[in-house]
Design a binder for these strands. Structure first.
Lengths: 104, 104
DNA sequence: CATGATTGACACCGAACGGTGTCACCAGCA
DNA sequence: TGCTGGTGACACCGTTCGGTGTCAATCATG
């Protein structure tokens, strides 16, 4: 519901694209006053990775991101997009969603 | 097997490791009664990727995951570790980090 | 039984990632 | 002024990811 904003407030931030995740990483890193190098060492990745990820490189290894987020005291969540009407036969509802998706 | 709570409940699911994300993907896919092939086409990735990711391959491209989650009507969130959990542990750790690097 | 769909699995291979190292640029400070 | 730390940006290179193609096993269905 909330738009993208600074993370330190205790809110979840939706990651629609890599760029947004990158922004989150960078923001948090600066917030923590960590250098790219420090973050990289903390997360066990190379500074190049941090630099390139923050720069918005579209391809990045998920495992690295998880570790970096961990080093930043952030976490990754997976959540349903249209969560709500989910009953015993959730498949039906989801099927509808899918159909809609299909027709575009 | 179903180690992780299925997602269809409308709750966010923390992704601590790739395996958990994989489980989420697989669970949701089955929930939607999509074949690996269908999901792959929907997400614009290869069936191999879906298969391998679900199989728990540790390395995966973030962009692909995002697209696959999208195709599954799931989303990815980044949230502070101490967001939902009330544990002061994270805060303390963060404080320590901050202090160390501010004065350092 | 025969047919089709689904899935796990493998080989092949080009492309890209990611690490290491290195450079220049810039801000801050003694 | 010179020095240091942080950063963006390269080259080089081994690794391996991801797509295509293919195969057999499994299961449901006609």
């Amino acid at each position: 519901m909330e738009p993208i904003g600074s993370i330190g407030e205790g809110k979840n931030v939706l990651v629609r694209s890599i760029g947004e995740a990158a922004a989150q990483v960078r923001g948090r890193r600066l917030q923590l006053r960590l250098s790219q190098d420090q973050l990289a060492q903390r997360a066990g990745v190379s500074r190049k990775w941090v630099y390139e990820f923050e720069a918005g490189k579209p391809h990045a290894e998920l495992g690295h991101l998880v570790r970096v987020l961990d080093a930043l005291d952030l976490q990754l969540d997976v959540s349903p997009r249209s969560a709500s009407s989910e009953s015993a036969q959730g498949a039906v509802d989801l099927d509808t969603i899918l159909e809609r998706h299909r027709d575009g």
